[in-house]
Amino acid sequence: MTSVLAEPAPGLLRAAPIDFHKHTMGPDSLLRYLQLKVHHLAQDQNWDSIRVVGDYDRTAIISRYEKTGKLFNIERPTATAYGRELIVRAYPGADYVQHYALIIATYLAMTGRPADVVTYQPPEQQECRAALDALTLPLDGDLVIVGWGLQHLAPKEGVWTRGPGYAWQRSDIAGRRVVHLGFLHSIWGDVAGQVVARLAELGAGDVVYVGKVGSLTPAIEPNAWLATGNTSLLRGSLVSWDDFFGDFAASQGGVHSGLHVSSPSILLEDRDWLARHSPSYAFVDPEIGPMGAAANQAGIGFGYLHVISNNLASIYPADLSNERHEQVLRRRAVLVDRIRTIITLRLAGHPARSVEGTR
Rank of each mutant, 00 (worst) to 15 (best):
G301M: 04
P123T: 00
I220V: 15
Y96H: 12
P155Y: 09
S171K: 02
T78L: 05
A275I: 02
V207M: 09
D48W: 00
Q45W: 14
I315S: 06
G214S: 07
I74D: 02
S280N: 14
L320W: 04
A94F: 06
V159W: 05
L12I: 00
A15C: 03
S314Y: 09
V307S: 12
G112E: 05
D270I: 09
F20A: 13
R129N: 08
L329I: 06
A352H: 00
P122H: 04
E356T: 14
S215R: 06
V196A: 08
F283D: 05
I61L: 10
V53F: 03
H152R: 15
A81F: 08
L102F: 10
D57P: 08
A42R: 07
Q194C: 06
L268A: 14
R170I: 04
Y120F: 12
A79N: 09
R235C: 07
T341W: 08
R359I: 14
R346N: 13
G203S: 01
F283A: 06
T80K: 15
G189E: 01
I103S: 13
E127P: 01
L143A: 06
R51P: 00
R338T: 15
K67S: 13
L320E: 07
V38M: 01
T24Q: 03
D172Q: 14
F20Q: 05
V53M: 03
A224D: 12
M110K: 02
N73Q: 12
R84D: 15
A79I: 03
R332C: 11
T59S: 15
G141V: 10
P92C: 05
H99D: 13
W168M: 00
F302R: 04
P17Y: 08
E356S: 10
R113P: 03
D116R: 02
I50E: 04
L150V: 07
G193H: 07
G303D: 00
S354Q: 15
R332L: 01
A224M: 12
G147H: 00
G205S: 01
D116G: 04
V195N: 08
V328C: 08
Y166G: 08
N230G: 15
H40E: 11
A105G: 07
R89W: 05
Q297E: 12
S257T: 13
Q121R: 10
R271Y: 11
L268S: 15
D285C: 10
A204F: 03
R170A: 13
V88H: 07
P92L: 01
A167I: 01
A295F: 06
S3E: 14
I145N: 04
R14T: 09
I342L: 11
S257I: 09
G214T: 02
V336Q: 13
R113F: 04
L153W: 10
A109S: 15
N311A: 03
G193W: 02
S278L: 03
V213P: 00
P218E: 02
G254P: 02
N46I: 01
D57W: 14
